[in-house]
Each structure stands twice: as C-alpha cells, then as structure tokens.
C-alpha cells in the first residue's frame, strides 16, 4: 500500500530528471525549450481565469447557500431505494461540481462514519468514481476560448451518475 501511494512521487522524480537529461543527450536546447513551453503555459492561465471565476461563483453560491444540501435531501427517496446513507447523496451531488468541496465532504463523512464502515468505504469509492466533470469541461474549453460546449456537459454529468451507480453496485456485491 505504501508503495502504491508513493508511486507518483517516483514517477515525478523520474520525469524531472529523465526528460531534461534525455533532451540534452539528444542535443536539444533544453533550457530555451523549457522557457518556451512554460511561457505558453502561463498564457493559458490568463485564458482559463474567466471560466474559473464564472464556475466558482455559480458553484459557490449553490453550495454555500445551502441549496445543494436541500437538493440532495430531496433525493432521500432515491437514497432509500438504493439503500445508501443520505449523506452519500450530498457527496454524489457535490462530486461533479466542486473538487475541493467533495474532498472536504468526504473527509467529514469518513470522520463521522469511520473510514472502514460501509458508508466510509462507499464514500471513498464514489469520490474516485469520476472527476470534477463540470469544472474540467469549463477549464478545458475555457483554455481555448470556446464557450459552446455541445453535448459535453450532459454526457459528462451522466457519466458521473453512471460512476456513482457503479460504486454503489460494486460495494454491495463485494460486501464492502
């Protein structure tokens, strides 16, 4: 398990040493290459900022006003039908719209129910079942200045829902 967690650290180590060294050995001007790439990257920041402000204000208002909690509580019959704790519905609703919000809520949930309880295990799997899809769509399209998102929003949200249902199913089958 310890090896699993530290795997990305070793990969980072390998990339930070390996890429410039390999480039230098192939005779590339690695320094100016790095600067050119980094300055392109920083220009991206300016391009994504407007989309991030739009997304964060809408999600922030929806979450911090308590409207999200109420919406999730309205899904209580669904929670009962699925046989999951109502808290899981809040996590599922938060997952596609707020990455830090979902992670914070997961921490609260693990603390309240215990990380090895049925609820704690399911919550962990739900957190990993999909990414913050609405944020990623806004970020990726925002970075190229595209505001027309075609079918990506419904597709990504439905995929998140599929991930949630798969999490509930696999935890039930595995008796977790």
């Amino acid at each position: 398990m310890r090896q699993l967690i530290s795997l990305p650290y070793y990969v980072v180590l390998l990339l930070l040493v390996g890429i410039p060294l390999y480039g230098a050995l192939r005779g590339i001007d690695v320094y100016s290459c790095f600067i050119a790439g980094a300055s392109d990257g920083l220009r991206t920041i300016a391009r994504i900022a407007p989309a991030m402000i739009a997304m964060f204000v809408a999600v922030g208002m929806f979450r911090d006003s308590g409207a999200l909690d109420t919406t999730a509580r309205a899904l209580l019959p669904v929670a009962r039908a699925l046989g999951v704790h109502p808290d899981l519905m809040i996590l599922a609703a938060l997952r596609p719209i707020s990455g830090s919000g979902a992670l914070g809520y997961l921490a609260k949930l693990l603390q309240a129910h215990g990380p090895d309880s049925a609820e704690g295990l399911l919550a962990s799997v739900v957190q990993g079942s999909a990414d913050t899809s609405l944020y990623i769509i806004a970020l990726y399209f925002g970075s190229v200045g595209i505001t027309q998102t075609r079918h990506t929003v419904p597709a990504a949200l439905l995929a998140s829902l599929a991930g949630f249902l798969a999490a509930v199913l696999v935890c039930r089958v595995a008796h977790m």
């Binding site: 890429i19 410039p20 390999y22 480039g23 790439g37 980094a38």
Partner: peptide, 12 residues
C-alpha cells in the same frame, strides 16, 4: 508545460 515541451522536442 516546460517539461512537456522538452519531451515533445525530444520525441518522447
């Protein structure tokens, strides 16, 4: 982005 540019140039 800087690292990616090097990796791109080096054919990685």
């Amino acid at each position: 982005s800087g690292m990616a540019r090097i990796a791109q140039q080096a054919g990685l």
